[in-house]
Simulated scan of single mutants.
Amino acid sequence: MEITFLQNIWFILVGVLLIGYAILDGFDLGVGILQFFTKKNEDRRVLINSIAPFWDGNEVWLLTGGGALFAAFPHVYATVFSGFYLAIMLLLVGLIFRAVCMEFRGQVESDAWREFWDKAFNFSSFLIALLLGVALGNIYTGIPLGEDMNYTGSFFTLLRPMPLLIGVTGLMMLVMQGALYLNIKTEGELQERAIKWSMASYKLFVVVLILTTAMVPVLTENNFQIFLSRWGAYPVILVILISLLVIPSFVKKGKYFGAFMASSVIIAAMFMVVALTIYPNLVVDSNDKFSMAINEISASEYTLKSMLIIALIGMPIVLAYTAYIYRVFKGKVKLDEHSY
């Protein structure tokens, strides 16, 4: 098994893990943001309990993606995690605080107490979604690297216009994902509101997506040309357009799971846009001098091969467990004495 083949396989697998995280944790981040727009405690509890069985398992995909990156492409792991240090710390604080909010909100019978933890839950969900989008934007746009593969910018370098635009696009995409998920899990008056949220977030996402797409050739002309030159570019664009077109129709017809799956396809396709643009690099140098190509910075052939064997054994187990959990907790949310 040639090392080039293994390097490409692990480029794909890291991407698959990140896509899995974005789709699965994406909807519960979206739900966390949308909870801000509810007033009744019962409605807020329904939203929290719609994601309660899944949120921690969803985050495993992010941990696994980080672990795979560390083992397969250690130089990339070192560069990204050191360069994005402050952003990653904010992300970790958000992830930790979000879990604390869910556990603490019901510990005291006080409206003020619940209100504080609910708002903290909303803000941490918003922060995580935005940070993830901006991080993806920086991977797409490129970051300044030195000859030693170290990040040479500052925290504010990460907040350039294009990464911020992509961050806002990602934020709206996850809000839409969360709203479409709530269409499946809620009923009655709350479901009617979730349907309105899904259509409103869909429209906002489309507007932001059009704006971001229009700015790509202006702010990152080279990336735009590279993407269009890839053989998979036009199929990916077609998939995004079809998925965008079917979501309103599915929602109108009450095919909420279909709408959710179409949104998930859009998320996966967005990652494919980034992958097609940056390949064969994992981290692009914005100065176009020291980009980190997979054939130059991967682990050894033995490491990649050993990890692939482990992945082939472990991934089916993870997928089976995930499918089982979602099957067990399918259906509408019903509150009881054990609910949050």
Results as ranks from 00 to 15, higher is better:
2 E>G: 15
9 I>F: 14
9 I>K: 11
11 F>G: 01
17 L>H: 01
19 I>W: 01
20 G>N: 08
21 Y>R: 10
25 D>N: 13
27 F>K: 09
28 D>G: 05
32 G>R: 12
34 L>G: 06
35 Q>V: 13
38 T>P: 01
38 T>F: 09
39 K>V: 08
39 K>M: 06
43 D>C: 05
43 D>G: 04
45 R>S: 13
47 L>A: 10
52 A>I: 08
54 F>R: 11
55 W>L: 10
56 D>T: 05
59 E>G: 02
62 L>N: 02
62 L>S: 04
71 A>Y: 03
72 A>V: 07
74 P>C: 12
82 S>T: 14
82 S>Y: 04
84 F>V: 06
84 F>M: 14
84 F>D: 03
85 Y>E: 02
93 V>W: 14
95 L>N: 03
101 C>Y: 03
103 E>A: 14
103 E>I: 09
104 F>P: 00
104 F>G: 07
105 R>Q: 11
106 G>Q: 04
116 F>K: 15
124 S>F: 12
127 L>V: 13
131 L>K: 08
133 G>Y: 03
134 V>C: 07
135 A>T: 11
142 G>Y: 00
146 G>T: 01
147 E>I: 13
149 M>Q: 12
152 T>N: 08
156 F>K: 10
158 L>V: 04
168 V>H: 02
169 T>I: 05
169 T>C: 09
172 M>A: 13
173 M>V: 12
176 M>C: 13
177 Q>W: 07
178 G>T: 05
179 A>I: 06
179 A>W: 04
179 A>L: 10
182 L>S: 06
186 T>M: 14
189 E>L: 14
194 A>K: 09
196 K>W: 06
199 M>N: 13
200 A>Q: 09
203 K>V: 11
206 V>K: 05
208 V>S: 06
208 V>M: 14
212 T>C: 08
229 S>Y: 01
230 R>E: 07
231 W>D: 11
235 P>D: 01
236 V>F: 01
243 S>I: 07
249 S>W: 08
249 S>G: 01
253 K>N: 12
260 F>C: 04
266 I>A: 04
268 A>K: 05
271 F>S: 03
272 M>T: 14
274 V>K: 13
275 A>P: 00
279 Y>G: 00
282 L>H: 02
288 D>G: 01
289 K>G: 01
293 A>L: 05
297 I>E: 02
299 A>Y: 01
305 K>D: 07
306 S>N: 13
308 L>R: 06
309 I>D: 00
310 I>W: 08
312 L>Q: 02
314 G>E: 02
317 I>W: 03
318 V>A: 15
318 V>H: 02
319 L>F: 07
323 A>I: 12
325 I>L: 14
330 K>H: 10
331 G>M: 08
332 K>S: 11
332 K>W: 05
333 V>F: 04
334 K>Y: 07
336 D>Y: 09
340 Y>C: 12
